[in-house]
Every structure is written in C-alpha cells, then in structure tokens.
C-alpha cells in the first residue's frame, strides 16, 4: 500500500500557478526524496499535505483514506524555517506541541521523557529555548516532529543547521523510525542526502512533477551507457558502435578513456573489443549521480 497518494493537485495563487496537476505516490516505509529547485512548489505541496492550506483541485489519499482533519496526528512535520516559542521551557513546549497533535498530557510526558533520554538531554527540561544553542534547539524541534510517533514524517531540509555529529545522530534516528514502520518524505537540495538515504524520488520543477520513481530506476533511466576505462597503451579509434568521448593520459603509459555505447551492446562485448586493442586495467560503468540528473533536468527545462 502507498502511505501517501497525491493525485492531480493544482494550486493557484493570485498571479502564479504554484502546483500544476502534481501527482506522487509514496510507498509505505520508504524514504522518499522530494527534490526541486527553490520556488518549484515543494513547500506548497507539503503545506497542502499538512492541511495548512487547501488545494484548488485534486485529491490526497493518506493510508488509504481521503485526507481529513484527524490526519494531522498521523503526520510529523519539520518545516524548513525552524521555530519554537523562545520564552517557553523545553518541557512545557514539547508538551504543548504534543497535545496540539492530540496526545493526552500523560502520554505526552512519557514520550517526551523517552526522547530526551535518548538524546541525552534530560536536564534541558527546565531550560528556556532562548537559552539553547541553534543545534540544541534543532534537536528539540526534531523531537517535536517525531514524538507522537507519526506514520508519515515530512522533513524539510532536516540537516541544515546540524553539525556532522548531530546530523549522523538524526540520520540514525530517521533510519530507526523507518525500521519501526514510519514513512519518511525528505524535501531537500542536498543531493548527498538523497544519494545516501532515499530509495524513491520525485523531482518538481516549475510547478510540475517532471520525474518520479525508485532511485535505481531513475538512475537507469538517465544512464548514458558510458564506461570509464583505465588501460595501458593508447588507441585512436573504436568500432562504429562505440564513441570515444575522451582520452586522457594518466601516468606512465596508462590512459583513462570515456566510452559511450551507441547501440544496445553489452558491456562484455565492449570489454572483449577493448582487449583486442589495449590492456584493460579497470572498467566502470559511469552511473549518473542524482546531482547530475537534477541539474540536467532542471537546466534542460529552463533552456526550453
């Protein structure tokens, strides 16, 4: 089952179209990367899923049900613009936020204590947020997002503001949450996050969803059948079904070549053909990084 299905969502503001017939499907227990340049409409989509604003048309199905007010307790949302009540103490603050999500006072206290213990910050309970450092406040904010055990967690740029140690801590928590059955949506520009964590992605550009699928499928779709070969002894030309894109001298008489296969030949065939003209030392398929795909697609759109 899909945790979330967004079907043909359109949202128009006074002078521009923020979302144009956007559909995405987020499988349960996946880590789903929602990508796109600034102003593409990601935040609008997330706000619609969180019922902060309404869409003009289209429907949203959450765990098999049409989106309804009760669903806010099922979702945990970490907005890109972080914020807490500065004058409130950490404990009070978290209890308040948990109760707004529908937890009873007792449940809220129990769960918050558990999380504070986990992050080894139990003694922060009586500290005011304004006395915390930015990184500390981020931890509190993360707890506020996940403390009610949401089945769907939406994180907008979750790692901004975290040092590498804390980023690692949060990453582990996210993976554990998935292990326990949560579905996670990342909205991010940081392609290494996507590369490391996401198993599904969607790319939104200029209010439209222009790409969706598993990370593997997307990469397969955008691979260019290009291979990077380290070989001893130069060669000038190849058979017509291959194209030599680049050949650089490495060291001694070693060379690094970039070869693209034009037809649907197999890599084995290429190796065979190469061994006849040179001595192959390494042979790697050049798979596009998410960053490259992102740039290609977004730039391509812009150039149209």
């Amino acid at each position: 089952m899909n945790a979330l299905e967004v079907n043909g969502i359109t949202k128009r503001y006074a002078n521009h179209l923020a979302l144009d017939q956007v559909s995405i499907s987020v499988p349960e227990r996946s880590i789903y990367g929602l990508l796109g340049p600034n102003g593409a409409g990601k935040t609008t989509l997330i706000r619609i899923i969180n019922q902060i604003i309404n869409s003009d048309s289209g429907e949203i199905i959450l765990f098999g049900e049409r989106l309804k007010p009760d669903h806010i307790g099922v979702i945990g949302y970490l907005p890109e613009e972080r914020g807490l009540y500065k004058k409130l103490k950490v404990g009070e603050q978290l209890i308040y936020l948990a109760r707004l999500k529908g937890l009873s006072h007792h449940d809220a206290v129990v769960k918050i204590k558990l999380w504070l213990e986990k992050f080894e910050i139990k003694d922060w309970w009586h500290k005011k947020v304004e006395d915390l450092s930015k990184g500390m406040a981020q931890k509190v904010q993360f707890i506020s997002t996940v403390m009610h055990e949401p089945r769907l967690i939406i994180l907008d740029e979750p790692f901004s503001g975290f040092d590498p140690v804390n980023a690692q801590l949060i990453t582990e928590e996210i993976l554990q949450l998935r292990q326990r059955g949560s579905t996670i949506i990342f909205s991010t520009h940081r392609m290494e996050t996507v590369e490391d964590l996401c198993d599904h992605i969607a790319l939104i550009n200029k209010s439209k969803r222009i790409l969706e699928g598993t990370k593997k499928a997307v990469k397969a779709q955008y691979k260019t059948n290009t291979y990077s070969v380290l070989h001893r002894g130069a060669f000038q030309s190849l058979e017509s079904q291959y194209e030599l894109l680049k050949q650089e001298k490495a060291e001694d008489d070693y060379f690094q070549s970039l070869i693209q296969m034009k037809s649907a030949a197999s890599p084995n065939q290429l190796i065979q053909d190469l061994t006849r003209i040179t001595e192959v030392h390494s042979f790697v398929e050049k798979v596009p990084t998410m960053s490259e795909i992102f740039i290609t697609l977004v730039k391509g759109e812009t150039h149209e």
């Binding site: 969180n50 806010i72 979702i75 613009e81 972080r82 914020g83 807490l84 009540y85 936020l97 707004l100």
Partner: peptide, 13 residues
C-alpha cells in the same frame, strides 16, 4: 520565530 508553521500543521489557523 517561525513557530507558527509548526502550530498550523496541528491546528487550523
């Protein structure tokens, strides 16, 4: 303080 977006994800504005 930007806390408002967290709150309105839990309650109606």
């Amino acid at each position: 303080s930007k806390v408002v977006e967290v709150i309105v994800s839990s309650v109606r504005p």
